[in-house]
Simulated assay, not measured.
Amino acid sequence: MQLGEESTSVGALVAIEVTPMHQMTSGKMAAQCAHAAQLAWESPQMPPALRQAWARDGYRVRVLLPGPQEWAGGLRPVSVLDAGLTELGGPTETARAFW
């Protein structure tokens, strides 16, 4: 992507929010986002037509960084709970997905 170009995540069918409550390394954050995307794909709450459209769209996601108040008030169909075996104490909610 070059300066001034629109992000390829614009118009993505699935969004992933990352917790503002805990700091993570970029690798940990990437893993939590991937886990949220996987759980979104497997979610019985995702309509089959949306799942098919997401596959046709190349499984693009947009990653959002909500503030603490937004995070505290947000309920989403998918929630990732980290067990706490690496960077964070567990269980810790690290990411959420919605569509």
Rank of each mutant, 00 (worst) to 15 (best):
S26D: 13
A97G: 13
P48Y: 06
V14G: 04
T92E: 04
V63T: 14
A72Y: 02
W54Q: 07
R60Q: 12
A34W: 01
L50A: 12
G58D: 09
R56P: 01
E70L: 10
P91Y: 11
G89I: 02
A30P: 03
A83H: 03
L85W: 08
V78C: 01
T19M: 04
Q32C: 12
Q23F: 04
A34M: 09
G67A: 08
V18G: 02
W41H: 14
L39V: 07
L85E: 13
Q32A: 13
T25S: 15
A40R: 01
A49S: 15
K28F: 14
A97S: 08
A12T: 03
K28R: 15
Q38N: 04
S26A: 14
L13F: 04
L50F: 09
W54L: 06
G90P: 09
M24G: 08
A34G: 15
E42Q: 15
G58H: 11
A97H: 01
F98K: 00
R62Q: 14
M46L: 15
G90I: 01
T92Q: 10
R60M: 05
H35L: 09
T19I: 05
L13A: 11
E87A: 07
F98A: 06
V80L: 06
G73P: 11
Q38V: 08
F98P: 00
P47M: 11
W54D: 08
A97P: 01
M29S: 13
L75A: 12
M46Y: 09
A31P: 10
R96Q: 12
L75I: 07
V63I: 15
T25C: 12
G11S: 04
V63D: 07
K28W: 13
I16W: 10
Q38C: 02
R60A: 11
A83N: 06
A72D: 13
I16V: 15
V80K: 02
M46I: 14
T86M: 07
R51P: 05
A95L: 04
R56E: 15
A55I: 12
P47R: 15
P66R: 08
W41L: 11
V63R: 11
M29V: 07
S26Q: 12
A49Q: 15
A30G: 15
A97T: 01
D82P: 04
T86K: 10
L64R: 14
V18H: 00
A95I: 02
H35W: 09
W41R: 12
A95W: 08
L75M: 07
D57G: 14
P47C: 09
V18Y: 00
A36M: 06
S79H: 04
G11P: 02
G27E: 14
V63A: 07
R60P: 03
A72W: 04
G89D: 12
E87G: 06
H35P: 00
